[in-house]
Computed example of a mutant assay.
Amino acid sequence: METSHAATVASVEQVTPHMMRIGLRLDEPSAWQSTGRPDEFVHVEVGADTMDADGHDSRHYTVSHVTPDGFEMEIFLHGDGPGATWARGARVGDRTAVSEPKAYYGPPAGPRTRVLLGDATALPAIARILAEAREEESFRVIIELADMADARDLATVAEAAVEWRVGGNGGGASILKDLLVDLAGDQLDPAAGAYIWVACESVHSRRIRQLLRREFALPLTHYRIVGYWHADLERALRVWESASDETKAQYAALWREDRSDEENWLELEPFLQRMGV
């Protein structure tokens, strides 16, 4: 894992049937610095003996609230993977370690509408974005759940229209792409100047990115699309492990720190398609 910060589980709460909120108290709170951005996440040591698609044996979770001596994070309980297993068994006093935070959400300044779209894994970030929004901000929010029992109140002082839909989340076909077109079509005109943030399953996130870029020609600064998880992680790992060292080096060279992630995706998407991912 990256820079590691030791932590102790300070609280455990069942938020909804499939969402746990776990509070961590850092051994050295001053050494860990929040990005200040509401979709920030950390990698967490959960005792996994398998890698994720990015080559980590840790798992990443959204920081839902920053506290004086650490932070809270929310974990969506889907399946029996190492992260969900760790969260279900977490007890106050348990020890773990976390990374420095990273974040993506960054709307340009101005009175433009923010469109937030995501599945259940995006709900913690969406909740924090709305909770920390300013009164003059305006939001269109669409959240896709497998079970409406996981819907909850999303407090905000901003103007926000929130819609809940059932679908996707590994239990069926995602309807997020269609919902984006149908429910926020007026915001997809580049002249509208909306900022669109999407977080969901990786394959669906890439389809939505292509929609915004190719069909609606939105400027790269007007959206941020994030793949939070892989529906077919085993296949993605097999493709990566079977790739040649030359292919892996080409992939690494495409992801440059001197340009934005969305700029990197302009080259990364066709490269991944050639790889068969």
Score class of each variant (00 low, 15 high):
176 L>C: 11
241 E>P: 03
159 E>L: 14
138 S>Y: 12
157 V>Y: 06
138 S>V: 13
212 L>T: 02
198 V>A: 11
161 A>E: 15
198 V>F: 01
149 A>S: 08
185 G>H: 11
156 T>N: 03
256 R>I: 02
159 E>T: 13
172 G>S: 11
217 A>S: 13
234 E>R: 15
224 R>M: 09
214 R>Q: 13
180 L>H: 05
239 V>Q: 01
166 V>K: 11
169 N>K: 05
205 S>Y: 01
243 A>M: 09
144 E>L: 03
207 R>H: 15
222 H>T: 03
157 V>E: 14
156 T>R: 08
156 T>V: 09
180 L>S: 05
140 R>P: 01
231 A>T: 14
216 F>P: 04
254 L>W: 07
203 V>F: 09
197 W>D: 05
221 T>L: 10
256 R>A: 05
162 V>E: 10
225 I>M: 04
171 G>K: 15
190 P>Q: 08
143 I>K: 04
184 A>W: 02
147 D>W: 02
156 T>P: 06
175 I>E: 10
228 Y>P: 03
157 V>A: 15
207 R>C: 03
226 V>W: 01
232 D>E: 13
160 A>H: 08
171 G>E: 15
160 A>G: 06
196 I>D: 10
178 D>T: 13
240 W>T: 10
248 K>A: 13
201 E>K: 05
187 Q>S: 13
165 R>G: 07
188 L>Y: 01
224 R>E: 10
212 L>K: 03
169 N>V: 09
161 A>P: 01
189 D>Y: 00
145 L>Y: 00
170 G>N: 06
248 K>N: 12
233 L>C: 07
235 R>D: 04
238 R>V: 06
192 A>D: 07
153 D>L: 13
192 A>V: 09
160 A>R: 08
185 G>Y: 10
217 A>Y: 03
228 Y>L: 08
189 D>N: 09
215 E>M: 02
164 W>S: 02
176 L>R: 08
214 R>H: 12
229 W>F: 06
210 Q>I: 07
209 R>G: 07
